[in-house]
């Protein structure tokens, strides 16, 4: 009798929970389509950044995004450190010198501008949030430093459990790519857009203050030996490249982390194996020498 009641309770509980589990999927569908999962060079346990991609991504950031979006945690020197775009220190010093950095006060008590050094951080395009909002019609262009880790979308059950094993964690770049390629005409029946509003398929609520920031051919990529860029100069490719660059900005030690992880894992598995047999040996005899069982 108790067994039946147990089964009944289990069934009830399962029914209740499955109701709960399937609900968020329906809700997310209302919010908009899920960003497509792209294939990234840095995903998985052996993931590494594609240097050329990071360098292209930096070019897109510098020429397009940086006019509104800062990256105030990233220093020029980071661009030459291992595991990043790996520009040469000379290139970085030359690049830094093209920026004017506010320094001071000098002996006269005045702030002054000087050419940037590799140790300097990227100067922000606006002096403060209020100035940014004033210039952008009330919207604040977020800083890019950790944005790739600050953007995500709901995975829902059971995907969030599956992600533990597949190591999927590229919600950020997937979302950023989807957002950049998601500018569309609003569907019929969508409320008329007010000035300063733009329709985006992947933005939660679909209304975004940023107008379509980039179009095909806007950024010129380095040419290959045949005189043509090895990758297409399209919005899709720009979005992939800048998203990859943003992942690196948010997680500059990603490569080191995954490499060390592999070593640690290999060691722990071997150590656990040794301990398992040691444990078996120890437990095979009782203290008086008699067999354990």
């Amino acid at each position: 009798m108790s067994r039946t009641s147990f089964r009944l309770a289990l069934t009830g509980l399962a029914a209740g929970l499955s109701l709960a589990f399937f609900q968020p999927a329906a809700q997310a569908a209302e919010g908009g389509p899920k960003p497509p999962a792209l294939s990234w060079s840095f995903s998985g346990p052996f993931g590494k950044f594609d240097r050329a991609q990071l360098q292209r991504g930096f070019k897109v950031y510098k020429e397009v995004c940086a006019s509104c979006h800062g990256a105030n945690l990233v220093a020029f020197r980071n661009l030459s450190q291992p595991g990043g775009p790996e520009f040469t220190p000379g290139q970085v010093a030359a690049l830094a010198a093209t920026y004017q950095i506010k320094d001071g006060p000098n002996e006269q008590g005045e702030m002054f501008d000087r050419p940037g050094r590799p140790a300097d951080r990227f100067p922000s395009p606006f002096p403060n949030e209020q100035a940014a909002r004033a210039a952008q019609g009330g919207a604040y262009p977020p800083d890019f430093s950790v944005l790739a880790k600050a953007r995500t979308y709901v995975r829902g059950f059971p995907m969030f459990v599956v992600d533990i094993f597949t190591q999927y964690q590229e919600q950020g770049p997937d979302y950023i790519h989807a957002l950049l390629t998601g500018y569309k005409e609003p569907p019929a029946g969508f409320p008329a857009l007010l000035p300063g509003q733009n329709f985006n398929e992947y933005m939660p609520g679909h209304l975004i203050a940023m107008p379509k920031p980039i179009s095909d051919g806007q950024v010129e990529y380095p040419k290959g030996p045949d005189g043509k860029s090895p990758v297409p100069e399209t919005v899709d490719q720009y979005a992939r490249d800048v998203a990859a660059f943003m992942v690196w900005m948010a997680e500059p030690h990603l490569e080191q982390r995954k490499r060390l992880g592999l070593q640690v894992m290999a060691f722990l598995v071997i150590f656990a194996g040794l301990l398992y047999y040691t444990k078996k040996k120890v437990w095979s005899r009782m203290p008086d020498g008699s067999p354990a069982h």
């Binding site: 346990p45 880790k149 600050a150 533990i164 190591q167 964690q169 982390r257 992880g261």
Partner: peptide, 17 residues
């Protein structure tokens, strides 16, 4: 270690960045 090295932000929340 699986979480620390391969899924370090799984247990956290994106908004905390």
């Amino acid at each position: 270690s699986w979480f620390v090295f391969y899924q370090p932000n799984f247990m956290g929340h994106a908004d905390n960045y």
